[in-house]
Simulated assay, not measured.
Amino acid sequence: MNTGPTGQAIDTTRHRALGTVSRASILELTRAAAGGLTIAEVSARTGLHPSTARSHLDRLVDAGLLVKARASGGQPGRPAWRYRPVPEEAPAPAPYRALAAALLEHLARQGRGDVRAEAARAGHDWGRHLAAATPPGGKPVDTAVAVLRGLGFDPELRPTADGHTEIHLYTCPFLELVSRNPDAICGLHVGVVRGALEQAGAPPNDAVLEPFGAPTACVVRLSLPADDSTGPK
Protein backbone atom coordinates (compact mmCIF):
# COMPACT_ATOMS: atom_id res chain seq x y z
CA MET A 1 0.00 0.00 0.00
CA ASN A 2 1.35 3.44 -0.91
CA THR A 3 1.84 5.77 2.00
CA GLY A 4 2.54 9.46 2.26
CA PRO A 5 5.27 11.21 4.24
CA THR A 6 3.38 10.86 7.54
CA GLY A 7 2.55 7.21 6.97
CA GLN A 8 -1.00 7.87 5.79
CA ALA A 9 -2.31 6.04 2.74
CA ILE A 10 -2.21 8.04 -0.48
CA ASP A 11 -5.60 8.63 -2.09
CA THR A 12 -4.60 7.73 -5.64
CA THR A 13 -7.83 9.09 -7.17
CA ARG A 14 -7.22 12.52 -5.71
CA HIS A 15 -3.51 12.32 -6.48
CA ARG A 16 -4.22 11.68 -10.16
CA ALA A 17 -6.89 14.39 -10.27
CA LEU A 18 -4.25 16.91 -9.19
CA GLY A 19 -1.71 15.56 -11.66
CA THR A 20 -2.04 18.56 -13.98
CA VAL A 21 -1.21 22.20 -13.36
CA SER A 22 -4.59 23.26 -14.72
CA ARG A 23 -6.63 21.17 -12.27
CA ALA A 24 -4.45 22.16 -9.33
CA SER A 25 -4.89 25.83 -10.27
CA ILE A 26 -8.66 25.43 -10.69
CA LEU A 27 -8.90 23.81 -7.26
CA GLU A 28 -7.03 26.74 -5.68
CA LEU A 29 -9.21 29.27 -7.50
CA THR A 30 -12.35 27.51 -6.31
CA ARG A 31 -11.11 27.33 -2.73
CA ALA A 32 -10.38 31.06 -2.80
CA ALA A 33 -13.86 31.98 -4.07
CA ALA A 34 -16.25 32.40 -1.13
CA GLY A 35 -19.30 31.15 -3.02
CA GLY A 36 -17.62 28.75 -5.43
CA LEU A 37 -17.33 29.19 -9.19
CA THR A 38 -19.29 28.36 -12.32
CA ILE A 39 -17.76 26.86 -15.46
CA ALA A 40 -17.97 30.25 -17.16
CA GLU A 41 -16.15 31.93 -14.27
CA VAL A 42 -13.38 29.32 -14.28
CA SER A 43 -13.06 29.69 -18.05
CA ALA A 44 -12.77 33.47 -17.77
CA ARG A 45 -10.17 33.32 -14.99
CA THR A 46 -7.98 30.63 -16.55
CA GLY A 47 -8.39 31.26 -20.26
CA LEU A 48 -9.46 27.65 -20.77
CA HIS A 49 -12.25 26.76 -23.19
CA PRO A 50 -15.51 26.15 -21.25
CA SER A 51 -15.57 22.50 -22.33
CA THR A 52 -12.03 22.02 -21.02
CA ALA A 53 -12.87 23.84 -17.80
CA ARG A 54 -15.94 21.63 -17.35
CA SER A 55 -13.87 18.50 -17.86
CA HIS A 56 -11.33 19.58 -15.24
CA LEU A 57 -14.02 20.59 -12.75
CA ASP A 58 -15.90 17.33 -13.10
CA ARG A 59 -12.66 15.38 -12.67
CA LEU A 60 -12.15 17.21 -9.36
CA VAL A 61 -15.74 16.39 -8.39
CA ASP A 62 -15.18 12.71 -9.17
CA ALA A 63 -12.09 12.80 -6.96
CA GLY A 64 -14.09 14.17 -4.04
CA LEU A 65 -12.27 17.51 -4.01
CA LEU A 66 -15.16 19.64 -5.26
CA VAL A 67 -18.93 19.37 -5.06
CA LYS A 68 -21.39 20.89 -7.51
CA ALA A 69 -25.01 21.99 -7.35
CA ARG A 70 -27.27 24.35 -9.25
CA ALA A 71 -27.52 27.80 -7.71
CA SER A 72 -29.83 30.32 -9.35
CA GLY A 73 -29.03 33.27 -7.11
CA GLY A 74 -32.71 34.13 -7.37
CA GLN A 75 -32.56 34.55 -11.15
CA PRO A 76 -35.12 32.96 -13.52
CA GLY A 77 -34.29 30.09 -15.84
CA ARG A 78 -32.24 26.94 -15.40
CA PRO A 79 -29.22 27.83 -13.24
CA ALA A 80 -25.66 26.90 -14.08
CA TRP A 81 -23.65 24.39 -12.08
CA ARG A 82 -21.64 26.04 -9.31
CA TYR A 83 -18.61 24.25 -7.91
CA ARG A 84 -17.17 24.66 -4.42
CA PRO A 85 -14.58 22.82 -2.33
CA VAL A 86 -15.50 19.96 -0.06
CA PRO A 87 -14.77 20.81 3.59
CA GLU A 88 -11.98 18.79 5.13
CA GLU A 89 -14.38 17.45 7.73
CA ALA A 90 -18.12 16.88 7.40
CA PRO A 91 -20.50 15.02 9.69
CA ALA A 92 -21.64 11.74 8.23
CA PRO A 93 -24.24 9.80 10.23
CA ALA A 94 -23.82 6.35 8.72
CA PRO A 95 -27.48 5.19 8.82
CA TYR A 96 -28.74 8.32 7.06
CA ARG A 97 -25.97 8.22 4.46
CA ALA A 98 -26.76 4.59 3.73
CA LEU A 99 -30.45 5.38 3.35
CA ALA A 100 -29.77 8.29 1.01
CA ALA A 101 -27.35 6.20 -1.05
CA ALA A 102 -29.94 3.45 -1.40
CA LEU A 103 -32.50 5.99 -2.57
CA LEU A 104 -30.14 7.38 -5.20
CA GLU A 105 -29.42 3.90 -6.50
CA HIS A 106 -33.16 3.17 -6.68
CA LEU A 107 -33.85 6.38 -8.61
CA ALA A 108 -30.98 5.64 -10.99
CA ARG A 109 -32.42 2.21 -11.72
CA GLN A 110 -35.86 3.65 -12.39
CA GLY A 111 -34.46 5.96 -15.05
CA ARG A 112 -37.69 7.84 -15.64
CA GLY A 113 -39.55 10.91 -14.48
CA ASP A 114 -38.21 13.94 -12.61
CA VAL A 115 -35.50 12.60 -10.31
CA ARG A 116 -35.49 15.72 -8.14
CA ALA A 117 -39.26 15.57 -7.69
CA GLU A 118 -39.18 11.86 -6.88
CA ALA A 119 -36.43 12.41 -4.32
CA ALA A 120 -38.38 15.31 -2.81
CA ARG A 121 -41.42 13.07 -2.34
CA ALA A 122 -39.31 10.44 -0.60
CA GLY A 123 -37.67 13.12 1.55
CA HIS A 124 -41.07 14.51 2.49
CA ASP A 125 -42.11 11.21 4.04
CA TRP A 126 -38.75 10.89 5.75
CA GLY A 127 -39.04 14.44 7.15
CA ARG A 128 -42.50 13.76 8.57
CA HIS A 129 -41.20 10.60 10.25
CA LEU A 130 -38.24 12.43 11.80
CA ALA A 131 -40.38 15.37 12.92
CA ALA A 132 -42.86 13.02 14.59
CA ALA A 133 -40.02 11.89 16.87
CA THR A 134 -39.22 15.44 18.06
CA PRO A 135 -40.86 16.92 21.22
CA PRO A 136 -44.35 18.23 20.31
CA GLY A 137 -45.60 21.77 20.82
CA GLY A 138 -42.81 23.76 19.22
CA LYS A 139 -42.92 26.12 16.26
CA PRO A 140 -42.77 24.43 12.85
CA VAL A 141 -39.49 26.18 12.05
CA ASP A 142 -37.96 24.95 15.30
CA THR A 143 -39.04 21.41 14.46
CA ALA A 144 -37.43 21.63 11.03
CA VAL A 145 -34.21 22.97 12.55
CA ALA A 146 -34.18 20.13 15.09
CA VAL A 147 -34.55 17.57 12.30
CA LEU A 148 -31.78 19.18 10.26
CA ARG A 149 -29.50 19.37 13.28
CA GLY A 150 -30.10 15.71 14.00
CA LEU A 151 -29.06 14.87 10.44
CA GLY A 152 -25.83 16.84 10.82
CA PHE A 153 -26.49 19.96 8.75
CA ASP A 154 -25.41 22.53 11.38
CA PRO A 155 -28.47 24.72 10.69
CA GLU A 156 -28.87 28.36 11.75
CA LEU A 157 -32.09 30.39 11.64
CA ARG A 158 -31.83 33.85 10.12
CA PRO A 159 -34.60 36.44 9.67
CA THR A 160 -34.81 38.16 6.29
CA ALA A 161 -35.35 41.82 5.51
CA ASP A 162 -38.95 41.12 4.45
CA GLY A 163 -39.83 39.48 7.78
CA HIS A 164 -39.55 35.86 6.69
CA THR A 165 -37.05 33.19 7.68
CA GLU A 166 -34.05 31.45 6.19
CA ILE A 167 -32.23 28.39 7.47
CA HIS A 168 -28.54 28.39 6.62
CA LEU A 169 -26.97 24.94 6.37
CA TYR A 170 -23.24 25.19 7.05
CA THR A 171 -22.35 21.54 6.68
CA CYS A 172 -23.72 18.67 4.63
CA PRO A 173 -23.43 15.06 5.80
CA PHE A 174 -24.10 13.81 2.28
CA LEU A 175 -21.46 15.63 0.24
CA GLU A 176 -20.05 12.51 -1.38
CA LEU A 177 -23.58 11.64 -2.55
CA VAL A 178 -24.14 15.13 -3.95
CA SER A 179 -21.36 14.46 -6.43
CA ARG A 180 -23.19 11.38 -7.72
CA ASN A 181 -26.54 13.08 -8.33
CA PRO A 182 -26.84 16.71 -7.17
CA ASP A 183 -30.44 17.19 -8.28
CA ALA A 184 -31.63 14.07 -6.47
CA ILE A 185 -29.83 14.67 -3.19
CA CYS A 186 -30.86 18.35 -3.07
CA GLY A 187 -34.43 17.27 -3.83
CA LEU A 188 -34.24 14.80 -0.96
CA HIS A 189 -33.09 17.55 1.41
CA VAL A 190 -35.82 20.02 0.53
CA GLY A 191 -38.36 17.21 0.85
CA VAL A 192 -37.13 16.47 4.37
CA VAL A 193 -37.60 20.13 5.35
CA ARG A 194 -41.08 20.31 3.83
CA GLY A 195 -42.12 17.09 5.52
CA ALA A 196 -40.87 18.25 8.90
CA LEU A 197 -42.66 21.58 8.56
CA GLU A 198 -45.91 19.94 7.50
CA GLN A 199 -45.75 17.44 10.36
CA ALA A 200 -45.41 20.40 12.75
CA GLY A 201 -48.43 22.19 11.27
CA ALA A 202 -46.96 24.51 8.64
CA PRO A 203 -48.39 24.79 5.10
CA PRO A 204 -47.07 22.17 2.65
CA ASN A 205 -44.32 23.08 0.20
CA ASP A 206 -43.23 26.04 2.33
CA ALA A 207 -39.53 25.62 1.64
CA VAL A 208 -37.17 26.25 -1.26
CA LEU A 209 -33.58 25.03 -1.10
CA GLU A 210 -30.97 27.26 -2.73
CA PRO A 211 -27.66 25.35 -3.03
CA PHE A 212 -24.77 27.74 -2.32
CA GLY A 213 -27.35 30.42 -1.57
CA ALA A 214 -24.83 32.08 0.76
CA PRO A 215 -21.03 32.18 0.46
CA THR A 216 -20.52 29.51 3.12
CA ALA A 217 -23.88 27.78 3.25
CA CYS A 218 -26.82 26.33 1.38
CA VAL A 219 -29.99 28.26 2.18
CA VAL A 220 -33.53 27.06 2.87
CA ARG A 221 -35.92 29.93 2.15
CA LEU A 222 -39.25 29.91 3.98
CA SER A 223 -42.37 32.01 3.53
CA LEU A 224 -43.22 31.57 7.21
CA PRO A 225 -42.82 34.73 9.31
CA ALA A 226 -39.80 34.67 11.59
CA ASP A 227 -42.01 34.67 14.69
CA ASP A 228 -44.54 32.13 13.35
CA SER A 229 -45.92 30.01 16.17
CA THR A 230 -48.58 28.02 14.39
CA GLY A 231 -48.59 24.30 14.78
CA PRO A 232 -49.84 21.68 17.19
CA LYS A 233 -49.98 22.73 20.82
Rank of each mutant, 00 (worst) to 15 (best):
R31P: 00
W81R: 11
V178S: 05
G36S: 10
E28I: 02
E89G: 02
L103I: 03
R221S: 10
P50L: 14
L48D: 05
P79M: 12
H106E: 11
S43E: 11
R180Q: 15
G213S: 12
A132R: 14
T3F: 14
P91N: 09
P203E: 04
A120G: 03
S25L: 11
R194C: 08
P76W: 12
K139C: 03
A144S: 08
P159K: 06
S223E: 05
T3P: 00
T160N: 15
L197I: 05
H49T: 10
A80R: 13
P85Q: 09
T171P: 00
S55N: 11
C172K: 04
G113P: 03
G4E: 12
R31N: 11
D62M: 07
R14G: 15
Q199S: 13
D227A: 13
L99V: 03
D183Q: 10
A226G: 12
A146I: 04
D228Q: 08
T38P: 00
V67W: 01
G74I: 04
G77A: 08
A214L: 13
P85V: 06
D154F: 13
V190G: 08
A119R: 03
A120D: 02
G111H: 07
T38W: 00
S55D: 09
G35M: 09
A120V: 01
S51I: 06
A117M: 04
V61Y: 06
T143Y: 13
A17S: 10
H15N: 07
D125M: 09
